[in-house]
Computed example of a mutant assay.
Amino acid sequence: MMLVIGYLLKSITQTVHDEFEEVDNLENVVNIPCGVSPKKRHEIAYLANEVKQVCEKNGCDVVVDFGSGLGYLDQIIFETTNLKVLGLECNTSHYVGAKKRQGKYHPNSVENVKYIKHTINENSNVSIEQYLRGKFLNFNGFCVAGLHACADLTVVALDLFLKMTEAKAIIIMPCCYHKMEKVDDRFKNFPLSNCFKDSFESSKGFEFMGVPFLRLGAQPPCCDEDLEDLVFNLISRAVLQLYASKHNCKLKRNTRKAVKTKTMNRNFETYIQDACNGFRLILNEPVCLENREDSSDIKFSNFELDELRSIWQEIESSLVLKKAAIFILLQNYLQPVIENLILYDRLVYLREKGLKNCKLKKVVNERISPRCMALLAYKNINRIL
């Protein structure tokens, strides 16, 4: 088993991909709203630029954006190219927000950038082709694009791309591999290629390539952060989890960023004060709460700060902190290996389907956006990537 894993790690670390190509002042050339974070500005600007190049090479005059969100990418594509855009979004608030933003800030794009509320699934090829013909009378071919295609969406997009005859190219940046659907305790779309499925079964990969494995693949490495800060954040969060387990509770975030660790200078007292507002404790019960029509009887518990301090004091002076540092460094080394494995599995899947013109490419700067890798594929058999 160890020889198999060792060979696999060596092979995956040598996976070939195209490197990121920086363009001078690109983020400032395109008209991205000021409220968008620097990371997202960078991603939008560079993915839009990549889409432009892909469409020029493959004769596409329409882009179909899978998971268009508030429409930032779509508007930048339209403003920097002559391309029409069809944005598909399943979230109602995002869809409505994109329409409002378009009417307020981009009224000149109404005829060329269309938004449709649609949940993409394995049968969406028929709907997409109908949408395209309904919204755009004439088009030569289209490119499928996706920024942060979560969980199974990337795989669904690849299968739809293969089905749709007028889809000439695809460029998609995946994320959240650990959220992929499971059937009978196995991931539906991992492994994906027949090549990897054979090795996966013979090596009993299902015994260790589960949710934690894929979660690590989706987790950006923390190479640029102070190791002491990383250890503090990890152990502090572990204290909360340990407390919740001891009191038969589930720990739930109240906000996406439950604790603002960058401003507390490794002070545990500040951490737990912040955590009391950022997290809530929900008492575990034998009945599945999610299936209840009335959730008013859900029982909550409160943090006891003295007990949290006591747990921290037991850990603070032990070898746990050193072990945590080793654990974090190991994660940093394994993360790109695991992600390369997941992405290369998808690349091999496309090649097994007869699509030879496909590759992996870093389309953004990984120091700005760790989710930098995209999968590109063309159907034009005369063009070599």
Rank of each mutant, 00 (worst) to 15 (best):
residue 137 L to Y: 11
residue 161 F to D: 08
residue 161 F to L: 05
residue 169 A to P: 05
residue 151 A to T: 14
residue 158 L to Y: 00
residue 103 G to N: 13
residue 152 D to H: 02
residue 121 N to R: 07
residue 146 G to W: 11
residue 109 S to G: 07
residue 105 Y to S: 11
residue 146 G to V: 07
residue 142 F to M: 12
residue 164 M to G: 02
residue 106 H to I: 04
residue 132 L to P: 09
residue 96 V to M: 08
residue 153 L to S: 08
residue 96 V to E: 14
residue 132 L to E: 08
residue 169 A to S: 15
residue 104 K to N: 12
residue 180 M to C: 14
residue 102 Q to V: 15
residue 165 T to M: 02
residue 168 K to W: 02
residue 93 S to H: 05
residue 143 C to K: 01
residue 101 R to Q: 08
residue 143 C to H: 13
residue 158 L to W: 00
residue 122 E to V: 04
residue 126 V to P: 02
residue 174 P to H: 07
residue 137 L to P: 14
residue 144 V to P: 02
residue 94 H to G: 03
residue 94 H to N: 12
residue 115 Y to G: 07
residue 178 H to A: 11
residue 171 I to T: 09
residue 129 E to P: 04
residue 167 A to N: 05
residue 128 I to T: 10
residue 122 E to W: 01
residue 131 Y to R: 11
residue 149 A to E: 00
residue 145 A to T: 15
residue 172 I to P: 01
residue 163 K to A: 11
residue 148 H to K: 03
residue 126 V to W: 03
residue 152 D to E: 06
residue 94 H to V: 00
residue 167 A to E: 04
residue 174 P to N: 04
residue 172 I to V: 15
residue 178 H to L: 14
residue 120 I to H: 00
residue 171 I to L: 13
residue 156 V to A: 01
residue 138 N to C: 13
residue 101 R to N: 02
residue 141 G to N: 11
residue 144 V to N: 02
residue 124 S to D: 05
residue 108 N to A: 06
residue 151 A to Q: 15
residue 97 G to A: 05
residue 170 I to D: 03
residue 129 E to V: 09
residue 127 S to Y: 10
residue 144 V to E: 03
residue 96 V to S: 06
residue 98 A to T: 14
residue 125 N to M: 04
residue 99 K to W: 03
residue 162 L to F: 03
residue 154 T to D: 04
residue 163 K to S: 11
residue 172 I to T: 11
residue 178 H to D: 06
residue 126 V to E: 12
residue 169 A to E: 06
residue 173 M to G: 08
residue 127 S to E: 07
residue 138 N to I: 13
residue 173 M to T: 09
